[in-house]
Design a protein around this nucleic acid. Structure first.
Lengths: 138, 138
DNA sequence: AGCTGGACTTGGACTCGGTCCATTGTAGGA
DNA sequence: TCCTACAATGGACCGAGTCCAAGTCCAGCT
């Protein structure tokens, strides 16, 4: 996990308590937190950390490619620490829970040239929607 | 196109000038408008229409399944009048333009049971990302 | 055609996620 | 250790969307 911190230092990151804390939070459970959730977990470890710093740090991690932004619903962005193994998402329509999934097949290959309209296509996101066992039980 | 209005009347919709205007706007160009764009186009036809009404009407159209909500970026929801033929989206990372595309293959079939984690999966969205010819030229 | 109830619209206040910015603090190289 | 460029702070601000109380007006009934 300090892999992450190592890598960041290697990229010339100035290592601050705040950044360390944010990185730790993301590295903890492999869940998909909203920025606010990251913030409140960070506050638990470092009470004075500010919302703006969390947003800044998340933004930096995203542009360094260490973390993925996931916009499955339109309420809050979520942050996916699992940026290094390609995967897609399965989202509960009720509670918003997200699981990483690894479908077979390559959707990029399923988009013929005739359907690309001159775009240079660089990536694809697949979001499965459904109801999680918890919500189905309720 | 008045198909749409017919269908709505058939479902017990009270037909008001506002709803007619919103439906007309969506039925016009087959582009993917934000709620605000829908509102400003609606205002052009019916100056006193309020933002809240546009939001209400869009919400109703969505829950009737006549229009699709698309959340490709996290800024504003877009509304897709092409709800009756299944399709996916190709989004320009620069300018946000959206095209409907029809890939071959069925991504739902690509998600094995072992990757469903007890969810009942009801649908899938595929978003291709890239750069449109316009933005590539610029 | 005129009435009337209840559905629809209005607009302004409010929420929520996120961004900005001027100020203050500090990591880390010389 | 000192210096300074980079980072953190927090409070104001923004934009998209929601809520709500009051007013409006569609449509079914006579």
């Amino acid at each position: 996990m300090s892999d992450l911190l190592e890598r960041l230092r290697g990229r010339g990151w100035r290592m601050t308590a705040q950044r360390r804390v944010v990185a730790e939070v993301l590295d903890g459970d492999h869940v998909h937190l909203t920025a606010d959730e990251v913030h409140s977990r960070a506050v638990a470890k470092l009470p004075e950390i500010s919302r703006a710093t969390v947003y800044n740090t998340l933004g930096e991690l995203v542009s360094l490619g260490e973390v993925l932004e996931v916009a499955t619903d339109k309420r809050a962005k979520r942050y996916d620490p699992n940026a290094h193994r390609p995967h897609h998402h399965l989202v509960c329509a009720q509670c918003g829970a997200i699981r990483d999934v690894h479908p077979t097949g390559n959707p990029l290959a399923d988009l013929p040239d005739s359907e690309r309209f001159g775009f240079s296509v660089s990536g694809v996101e697949v979001t499965y929607r459904g109801t999680c066992p918890n919500c189905a039980a309720a």
